[in-house]
Amino acid sequence: MQQTRKKTILKAAVCLVLLAAALIGLRNQQYLLTLLNFVCMYMISVSGLDILFGYSGQISLGHAAFYASGAYTSALLTTKLGVPVWLAIPAACLVSLALGIIVALPASKLIHHFLALLTISVGQLVYILISRASFTNAMTGIRSIPNIPLFGYELKSKYFFLIFMILMVALFLIIKQCIIHSRVGRAFQAIRENPVAAGGIGINVQKYKIMAFAISAVYTGFAGAMYAHFVGFISPETFTSAQSVMFMTMLLFGGMGSFSGPLIGAAIVTFLNETLQVLGSYRMMVYGAFILAVLLFLPHGISGLIDIVKQSLFKNRGKEDRHADA
């Protein structure tokens, strides 16, 4: 037990040193820094989706709605009402939370195909609203959203924004792990495995389903707010159903219901997305092919694949040991 703890501490220390080294090395790579900022945002939102789909087994194909609610709340509050950024971000999370609960109230009763349709419809509703309403400037979007001030210093440089984002990713991942290993997380997993049995052992299925939706919405809403403050400009095109599909692709590709899955998925799909820019609108086809490939050949995503490789490595090592004994 002590040894494993020492090992994890050592591992964490090595990771931190590597991260710091990478950060120092990347100091002036503006393009890479932008990409990494996006990776961090997606990591947070996909982790949120993982809590909902990976851990509590409820699908959402309309997560762009929460992404939009976070981004637009924060942007509107700061640009139109002049609310300080540090108040606008919690407000964005609260609005996403409220939207999550509103969606979850009917959603918590439905089986998954209907849930898929309901969440698609919610995504469409939010998109139609933000692309037509005058208070969101319709298709023109919102410009000059202020950056995040930290200790009286604005996070204008992508470099410092990235450091801030990494801290946020760490914070949200720690919260996610705490939730997953708590009573609530165990209830989520029980509901995922069998809602009827979960209800039978006294879990309030509907309550926990709503909770999963609400937590997930906060994660994605926060990521949306970060997007708005990082880019400084938002328009409805970012929040189409393609965005929801991308979140789902990231989650499936990385591996559901795992710590590393959403991180791997977010990183790989973001970078692939950039390298595939040459394909233009055909990029969507790659998402589709990814989804099919994962479903057909990699049901646990990349993180599942890594687990399998690890296991087979250990097995081989075990065999060698046995040979040595003989």
Partner: peptide, 11 residues
């Protein structure tokens, strides 16, 4: 299955 049909409908 639902996800696979969504994959097809993207392609």
């Amino acid at each position: 299955i639902v996800l696979s049909t969504i994959g097809i409908s993207i392609i």
